[in-house]
Simulated scan of single mutants.
Amino acid sequence: MTLQDMIKLATEGKICELELLSLEGGFYILRAQLQETCCTLLDNKGQTMQLRSTTHLRDLLSDLPASAPPLSCVLVQHVVHDEMCGAREGPIEPLRMPFSLTSTW
């Protein structure tokens, strides 16, 4: 999904949630959760777009019209320490922290 596609779907209220997935190496990828599927944000070459921060995401979506419904956003980070140490039993869920596109705090 390109940025233009994402803005169009967000404006139409078809995006349920945006997930900013933190990956090793200090970059992020963005996934848009729709009703039936999850789509990754792609660059102009069709490759997965690498974002630098939540601020980078806010800048990318600055063209979103004010009339668009508010987007639910979460930062998703897997807890590598728990996976390496094996201290907990059962499945280990990633950390999911909500954040706002309108406020940096």
Results as ranks from 00 to 15, higher is better:
L23R: 15
M49A: 05
T104P: 00
E19L: 10
R88C: 09
C38K: 15
C73H: 04
S72H: 09
P65G: 04
V79L: 11
L95K: 15
E89N: 15
H56I: 02
G25S: 04
L34D: 05
M6W: 03
Y28L: 03
T11D: 05
T54Y: 01
A32G: 04
D43N: 09
T55F: 04
L101M: 06
V79M: 10
Q35N: 11
L30G: 08
A32N: 00
L23E: 11
T102Y: 07
R31D: 00
E89S: 15
G25Y: 03
L23I: 08
L64V: 12
T48K: 12
T54M: 04
L64G: 14
V76H: 06
L9V: 00
Q50F: 09
E83W: 13
C16S: 01
S72T: 09
E36H: 09
L71N: 03
D63N: 14
L95H: 12
E83Y: 13
G13S: 04
G46Q: 06
K8L: 07
G46H: 08
S100D: 02
L64T: 13
V79Q: 12
S72Q: 10
E83M: 12
S72P: 07
G26F: 02
S22A: 11
V80W: 09
L95V: 11
Q47R: 15
I92N: 13
A32Y: 06
M1Y: 08
L95W: 02
